Every structure is written in C-alpha cells, then in structure tokens.
Amino acid sequence: MTSLRIAVLVHSHPALKKGGGEIVAHRSFTHFREVCDHASLFGVALPEVPGATSIFASDERLVRYDEDEYLMSCQGYNNFLGTTSNWRLLDDIADICEARRINVFHFHHFFQLGVNAAAYLRARFPKAAVKGGPIPGRRGGAKPGHRRQVG
C-alpha cells in the first residue's frame, strides 16, 4: 500500500453510461482501491441519460451510489467555456475529500465538471496533486502495444 488517497473525477459513471472513458475511469478507481490507502469516485449523472435526474431530490447535488462512489448533478456547466458555476457542488466534493484526507485529484475528463473545478480543488487542497488527462503510463492515451500514426 502507498500513502496515496485518490479522488477520481469523471464525466459520467459506467452504471449510467457505458462509454470508454467511464469504464477506464472506473477500472482505474478499482485498481487504486487495491494499491492505495483510499480511493473515491465522483461521476456525473448526465441529464440526457434516461432516469439520471430522478436520482436526486430537488435540493441534492451529490448522492452516494456505492461504497466510496458518488453521483453528481452538474447544473451550471457552460459548454462554451468548459467551466462550472456550481460552487456548492464543488464545496460538497471538497468536504467529502477533506473527510477522507484526499491528497491526489485525478480528473479523467473535465467535461461537465469544468476546468475551474481543478483550480478550485487546488486552492482548497494546496498540498494535493491535481492531475488530468490520460492514466499515467499510457503514452498520449494510446492503447498499450499500439503506436500512434504520425503524418
């Protein structure tokens, strides 16, 4: 075990949407749970997924889905700017992460979460690492054993 305490933030959850990004993020979360002191997963419940909005009461922004897994209602996301105005949701995420002593934030995607979410968490957790993009060890997101074609 390592002293890493990781929060994985992703634009959806594979229980709601079976896209490649959601599956990779959830598999990463599962792996982190095995090799780190703690891992949490925060996935967006996209409003266009049938039934996703019925998960939340009118005043809820975040609900527990499973052990250390949370679904988020991401109202206030600006598609043009790629930012969120839902500061209360970010406060809720940060409060959970503070209680779990998270020291690494891994953004699998910023879509529906906002690039400013990373800046917010960096400010709230100045000693934590904030990462985004492909999983470490995967060159540019390419599949292992495959090379990208150039030109």
Rank of each mutant, 00 (worst) to 15 (best):
T2L: 04
L4S: 14
R5T: 08
I6V: 14
I6Q: 06
V10Y: 01
V10D: 14
V10H: 08
H11K: 07
S12F: 00
H13V: 02
P14F: 12
P14R: 03
L16F: 02
K17E: 15
K17Q: 11
K18Y: 07
K18G: 13
G19V: 13
G20Y: 03
G21N: 08
V24M: 07
S28Y: 15
T30F: 06
H31T: 06
H31Q: 08
H31L: 09
D37A: 10
H38Y: 14
A39D: 03
S40R: 07
L41C: 07
F42G: 00
F42W: 08
L46D: 15
L46C: 05
P47A: 11
P47M: 10
E48F: 13
V49S: 11
V49M: 06
P50N: 02
P50A: 01
G51W: 01
A52P: 00
A52D: 08
I55Q: 10
F56N: 03
A57E: 02
S58V: 00
E60L: 00
L62I: 09
E67P: 00
Y70S: 02
Y70E: 03
M72H: 09
S73M: 02
N79R: 11
F80R: 08
L81R: 14
G82P: 06
T83H: 13
T84H: 00
N86L: 05
W87E: 03
W87S: 07
L89R: 00
I93S: 01
D95Q: 12
I96W: 02
I96Q: 04
A99Q: 12
A99R: 06
R100S: 07
R101F: 15
I102Q: 09
I102A: 11
H106R: 15
F107C: 06
H108K: 04
H108A: 11
G114N: 11
G114T: 07
N116H: 04
A117N: 01
A117T: 13
A117M: 07
A119M: 08
Y120P: 05
L121V: 10
L121R: 06
L121Y: 02
R122T: 10
R122F: 08
A123I: 08
R124F: 07
F125M: 06
A129R: 14
K131V: 07
K131L: 15
K131T: 09
G132S: 09
G133Y: 13
P134H: 14
P134T: 05
I135T: 15
P136M: 12
G137H: 03
R139H: 09
R139Q: 07
G141T: 02
A142I: 13
P144H: 11
G145I: 05
G145N: 02
H146K: 12
H146Y: 15
R147I: 10
R147C: 11
Q149L: 15
V150G: 10
V150S: 13
V150D: 09
G151C: 12
